[in-house]
Amino acid sequence: MTTQNVTIPASSGGMFSAYLAAPSTQPRAGIVLIQEVLGVNAIMRQTADNYAKEGYQVLVPDLYWRLEPGVQLDPEDKDQFAKAFELDRAFDVDSGIEDLKATLLFLRQYPSSTGKVGSVGFCSGGKLAYFMATRTDADANVSYYGVGIEKYLAEATKIQKPLLLHMGEEDEYVSPTAQATIQQGLKDNPLVTICRYAGVSHGFSRVGSTAYRQAAAELAHDRTLAFLRQHLG
């Protein structure tokens, strides 16, 4: 496996950086890995490395580059966690989706790519993974504890490729009402699979954090890998 930082041209002008983790095998399907509110921090880079070890070419774009390039925040530091939410409030979702489309194109055209590229997103990135399903032609998309999806269920009619949603039943940022709304809104869509995990809260797959819950995280990861292998190869 190799890692490097690459630069991607934005459709609106300018350039943004991304962390690339690539396996030694070829050819490779790709994953656009979408950051939490914490930026492209050590946890996201480790997650990218783990997927690369499974044979995927993984690219983690710096979606905060218009606000503050290179953000890397620690979820266990209260001040840094507060800054993460400030950045998230200032973040322009539509611009972020354009950057994700550019990242998707970059991966599809990258040497040794199979052309198959999906996305995996966490937290705010989980919502963006939902938008990858409704607003792009990514081949498969996975959302971990996506925040705010219930507000955008009208877009579900645009889903053309498989979407997997992981939700912790005790998620403090996605209420039981919101989860019920999401389930009700998506239950008749054959492209959508929803997995809920009892007794776990937001961030249950965030390795090294107090929110991490090993059993649920490993089950979700196994389901994600099976889903990606089915739809990306």
Rank of each mutant, 00 (worst) to 15 (best):
V32Y: 02
I34W: 00
Q35M: 12
Q35E: 06
V37L: 10
L38Y: 14
V40E: 08
N41V: 04
N41F: 08
A42R: 15
A42T: 12
A42C: 07
A42H: 14
A42Y: 14
I43N: 12
A48P: 04
Y51S: 04
A52C: 09
E54T: 01
E54F: 04
G55P: 01
Y56L: 07
Y56V: 00
Y56H: 02
Q57H: 04
L59Q: 03
V60S: 15
V60C: 15
P61A: 10
L63K: 07
L63A: 07
W65L: 09
R66V: 03
R66I: 05
L67E: 09
Q72Y: 11
Q72M: 14
L73H: 08
L73G: 01
P75F: 03
E76R: 14
E76N: 15
D77I: 13
K78S: 15
D79M: 07
D79S: 01
D79A: 15
Q80D: 07
F81Y: 07
K83S: 14
K83E: 10
A84G: 15
E86M: 02
D88C: 08
R89G: 08
R89I: 01
R89M: 05
F91N: 13
D92P: 02
D92H: 09
V93C: 13
V93T: 14
S95D: 11
S95V: 10
D99Q: 03
L100Y: 04
K101F: 00
K101T: 00
T103F: 00
L104S: 05
F106E: 06
F106L: 05
F106P: 00
L107H: 05
R108H: 03
Q109R: 12
Q109E: 11
P111S: 13
S112W: 02
S112L: 12
S112E: 13
S113K: 10
G115A: 06
G115V: 03
K116N: 08
S119R: 05
S119D: 08
S119M: 09
S119N: 08
F122R: 07
G125I: 00
G125L: 01
G126N: 07
G126C: 11
K127V: 03
K127M: 09
L128I: 03
L128F: 07
A129P: 00
A129Q: 06
Y130N: 08
F131L: 11
A133S: 10
T134Y: 00
R135P: 03
